[in-house]
Amino acid sequence: MSAQGPALGERQRAAIEERGPGPVGVTLSVNGEERSLEIEPRVSLLDALREHLELTGAKKGCDQGTCGACTVRVDDRRVLACLTLAMTCEGREVTTVEGLAEHGELHAMQRAFIAEDAFQCGYCTPGQIMSAVALLEEGHAGDDAEIKEWMSGNLCRCAAYPHIRAAIRSVRDGQRR
């Protein structure tokens, strides 16, 4: 571990609060609940969720923004938790796959993934479901080609893609009715 560089100058310190590099107290709003944790600023949102808050739904597939298994929602947008530093989410609302169900009832997309058999090993599934819910809200599920393109950030090594699209279609069509 290399030594730390000089801290910010006095003038800058007065204008801006520098935190870290050691563990600092952070409050995150996750699935509607205020959660307090002690983390270093270098901790990703994904590690904060999995290692500190025991929310292991979001998966660590690649940890470099290429697989989509860590997809969660920050405010109203689907993002990659592995490339998001946890501290940047203070004051924002984080939703993980654990927060989709309401009153013990699975979200329609979760039910559709089960009904359509939209997974084999299941590792990418939480990311697929978080992405699929956002996809419908974004209005990019018009046809299969559009679903394919706008879900391309979520890889599935079991290649369950046709069933994932079927699940998305079924929720889309259920909404239309």
Partner: peptide
């Protein structure tokens, strides 16, 4: 990843002053 510090800037002048003051 090496250890880092984190600060959130509220305005551009503050952010620019903070980064300009330190090559790190």
């Amino acid at each position: 990843m090496r250890p880092i510090t984190y600060a959130r800037a509220a305005d551009a002048a503050t952010a620019i002053a903070a980064v300009s003051a330190d090559p790190g």
